[in-house]
Amino acid sequence: MEIWALKHTDLNPAHRQYKAMVETYWRVTPAEGNPYQELDA
């Protein structure tokens, strides 16, 4: 992303601000003895 922004600014000097949006996913495994553990199997 940084390289793209630098190249884009080189070609378009008026474009100097960018917003990076990130989407992250998490997976949580229930601990042993947790009643929800069997649903994960």
Rank of each mutant, 00 (worst) to 15 (best):
M1W: 13
M1T: 14
E2W: 04
I3W: 12
W4I: 03
W4K: 08
A5I: 01
L6F: 13
L6P: 04
L6C: 12
K7F: 12
K7G: 14
H8S: 03
T9E: 05
T9I: 02
D10M: 00
L11S: 01
L11A: 06
L11F: 02
N12P: 00
N12A: 00
A14S: 15
H15E: 04
H15L: 09
Q17I: 03
Y18C: 10
Y18Q: 00
K19A: 09
K19E: 10
M21R: 06
M21N: 06
M21C: 02
M21T: 08
V22G: 10
V22S: 11
E23R: 07
T24R: 14
T24M: 12
T24Q: 11
T24F: 09
W26P: 00
R27F: 12
V28D: 00
V28K: 07
T29F: 10
T29W: 11
T29P: 02
P30S: 09
P30Y: 03
A31T: 15
A31N: 14
A31R: 13
G33H: 03
G33M: 00
G33E: 01
N34K: 09
N34E: 07
N34T: 09
P35Q: 10
P35M: 08
Y36K: 13
Q37D: 04
E38P: 09
A41W: 02
A41H: 08
